Computed example of a mutant assay.
Amino acid sequence: MSLTPSLPPSFPPFSALVTRLRAAGCVFAEDEAQLLAAAAATPAELTVMVERRAAGLPLEHVIGWAEFCGLRIAVDSGVFVPRRRTEFLVERAVALTGPGAVVVDLCCGSGALGAALAAAVGGVDLHAADIDPAAVRCARRNIAAAGGRAYRGDLFDPLPTALRGRVDVLLANVPYVPTGEVELLPAEARLHEARVALDGGADGLDVLRRVTAGATHWLAPGGHLLFETSERQVPGALRTVEDAGLVPEVAECEERYAVVLTGTRPLG
């Protein structure tokens, strides 16, 4: 039995879509063609979407959403696309979060992390913040179902002051690509995602240093900061967490090539 979708007669043949995408270098051309065909309302719209994808735009920007932790996360053009490896960070956070917890998703991008954590735990008091206005608009849509609120501004600056010292779980998907390596990223990220979501400064840890410096003022006693980094940045990230007075823990997921650090504010 063929799994090839049957498109209406007025639509281009499915095989033609696959051929166009494969010629453009799309490794998963068949899967992408199915997603594009499902997202298009008209033949003209499908043609435009296929050409946008063939031109190098991220598939998620073309269809308007990304799958993350089993959720469909809205992702507008230019907004950072949540990576599947970052699901490991959410899994680590879920294990530390109870119903009613105060959760902040900092450098939230689309708000995928906060939305996924809220869906997994339920009943959390969710807040998100990002400096990119397009990201904040996305996050507001994605966390609305959880009753979350999203703010635009630099790191902690836009958060309500009433949250100081009360945050139980602080998710911070900070940019950690060293400035000199941004140009080495795949074109999908380098050309179509906000640089502020990628560039972590000279050693990739500049934003993390600012986050850890402020974390102790916002975390509740026993509260946790969680962030993703690269394997080679772990020693520097550990020092940064320790210098902020937080107790670090490193976790790795080889299957997803993910490294997550947790910094816990000591009790008392």
Rank of each mutant, 00 (worst) to 15 (best):
S2I: 07
S2N: 13
T4N: 13
T4D: 15
P5F: 02
L7N: 00
L7A: 00
S10G: 06
P13Q: 00
T19E: 15
T19A: 15
R22A: 15
A23F: 09
G25M: 11
G25V: 09
C26G: 07
C26Y: 08
F28A: 13
E30D: 14
E32K: 06
A33K: 05
Q34N: 08
L36N: 07
P43M: 01
E45W: 00
L46I: 02
V50L: 11
G56V: 09
L57I: 07
L57F: 15
L59W: 11
G64K: 06
G64Q: 09
A66R: 13
A66V: 05
E67S: 14
G70R: 14
L71M: 08
A74Y: 12
G78H: 08
V79G: 05
R84L: 15
L89S: 01
A93H: 09
G98S: 09
G100P: 02
A101I: 06
V104S: 12
D105S: 04
L106F: 10
C108S: 08
A112D: 01
G114L: 05
A115M: 04
A115P: 01
A116M: 02
A119Y: 01
V121Y: 15
V121T: 15
V121H: 15
V124I: 14
A128E: 05
D130W: 04
I131W: 06
P133E: 04
C138F: 13
R140N: 03
R141S: 05
A145F: 08
A146Q: 10
A146R: 08
G147D: 11
G147W: 12
G147A: 13
D154Y: 09
D154F: 03
L155R: 09
L155S: 10
F156K: 15
P158L: 12
L159D: 10
L159E: 07
T161C: 12
L163G: 12
R164V: 07
R166N: 11
V167C: 05
L170I: 14
L171D: 11
L171K: 09
A172S: 03
V174I: 03
V177E: 08
T179D: 05
E183Q: 07
L184V: 04
L184F: 11
A187F: 02
E188I: 02
E188Q: 13
E193H: 03
R195L: 03
R195Q: 00
V196I: 06
G204W: 02
L205D: 00
D206N: 00
D206Y: 01
V207P: 04
A213M: 14
A213G: 15
A215D: 04
T216H: 12
W218D: 09
P221H: 04
G223D: 05
H224W: 14
L225E: 06
E228C: 14
E231F: 01
R232L: 10
R232D: 12
Q233T: 07
V234D: 10
L238D: 08
T240D: 00
T240W: 02
D243I: 03
A244Q: 13
A244Y: 14
V247I: 12
V247Y: 06
P248K: 14
A251F: 05
A251C: 03
A251M: 07
C253R: 13
E254K: 12
E254F: 06
Y257D: 11
V259L: 05
V259K: 04
T264E: 14
T264I: 11
R265A: 14
P266K: 11
P266S: 13
L267C: 07
G268S: 04
